[in-house]
């Protein structure tokens, strides 16, 4: 009996030693429940309707752009170009990199500058933005109401509420709430499979939480704490051109800050940062762990941005760890036929 107990204790100790003696690994796993507002609970009808709308180019002024154009599942829910798709309406280009939709359901603020406080608030913004879909809602709602197939689907999803800008936002938000990260090698590791990630990735995880201080901002299971940071990408006059959250309100702490993005599936969501100026995870890691692209001359730079003096080998291990956060693609059938 004592021998059995000793073996059990030994095995338990070994697991704890591998995963971190005093760390509750459950904090790194996605919660099973998806946050939903009381007035827009998820239903199959709402999700399906939202999916059709998300991929339907008729939501843009010239019937060429859908939400998926800039936030496409085959491109990590973004678009692989530095700033919002160069094929934007009439060739216009937005000032910021397309933020990933993945796990947006869990974020309190949407957009890089956090100006929307819910997915419902966010959903219709790009539709009416002139550098994106350029379709004022005053024109879009009548346009959609002429498509009888949509009118019927809205009635099924939101009985008695009609096809309005509110139900349009609710439907798209419902679909977005289903865009969730899948089980990555790191998740398997966090659940106890010590062989799920490489030794370099394990050391990278330790660096991520320790010497590199990545966790100061990329904290929690979604690898973002939802914070707004100025990571020193621009100095001098350049920083005055992109004020970030300061545009929402002239609060001192918001000068030049942008939302900390998730690192889930980060290998799929390049290029990186709000301006899409960095192509590789290595370069992004070096910038973040060395105190920003510019050491001096940055107004309101985050004090989490310090030179952590990582070696090349340590940077490589942090990158190896971040690669382990990528899971299989979501099982999603992209619509090819739309309501008429």
């Amino acid at each position: 009996m004592l021998k059995k107990l000793t073996v059990v204790v030994f095995l338990f100790s070994s697991c704890v030693a591998v995963l971190g003696a005093d760390e509750d690994m459950s904090k790194w796993l996605r919660p099973s429940e998806v946050p939903q507002p009381k007035n827009n609970k998820l239903t199959p009808e709402r999700i399906e309707l939202g999916k059709l709308l998300y991929f339907d180019v008729r939501l843009s002024k010239d019937d060429t752009i859908s939400c998926a154009t800039c936030h496409h599942p085959q491109h990590g829910w973004t678009d692989e170009v530095p700033t919002s798709k160069a094929v934007g309406y009439d060739g216009r280009v937005g000032p910021r990199n397309s933020p990933v939709i993945l796990n947006a359901a869990y974020q309190r603020h949407q957009f890089w500058d956090g100006r929307a406080r819910s997915l419902e608030q966010q959903a219709t913004g790009p539709m009416s933005a002139d550098v994106e879909m350029n379709m004022p809602l005053e024109e879009l709602i009548p346009k959609l109401n002429k498509i009888q197939g949509y009118v019927a689907l809205f009635e099924k999803a939101y009985p008695g509420e009609g096809l309005t800008k509110e139900t349009l936002a609710k439907a798209v938000a419902s679909f977005e709430r289903t865009v969730l990260s899948t089980e990555s090698p790191f998740d398997k590791y966090a659940r106890g499979d010590k062989n799920a990630i490489s030794e370099d990735a394990k050391e990278g995880f330790a660096l991520f939480k320790g010497k590199a201080h990545c966790i100061d901002c990329h904290d929690g299971w979604n690898f973002t704490d939802g914070s707004f940071q100025n990571i020193g990408l621009n100095d001098g006059e350049l920083q005055g051109k992109e004020l970030g959250r300061y545009n929402v309100k002239n609060r001192g702490a918001w000068y030049g800050v942008f939302k900390t993005p998730t690192l889930r599936d980060v290998t799929k969501s390049y290029p990186y940062f709000h301006d899409g100026s960095v192509k590789t995870l290595e370069e992004a890691t070096v910038i973040c762990a060395s105190g920003g692209r510019y050491e001096n001359g940055v107004r309101n730079k985050s004090d989490a941005m310090k030179d952590r003096k990582l070696t090349h080998e340590e940077v490589a291990k942090v990158v190896e760890f971040m690669k382990s956060l990528t899971g299989p693609d979501i099982d999603l059938k992209i619509p090819t036929k739309f309501p008429q």
Partner: peptide, 8 residues
């Protein structure tokens, strides 16, 4: 009350 940096 919120934190302007960490709104959670």
């Amino acid at each position: 009350v919120e934190c302007a940096i960490h709104p959670n």
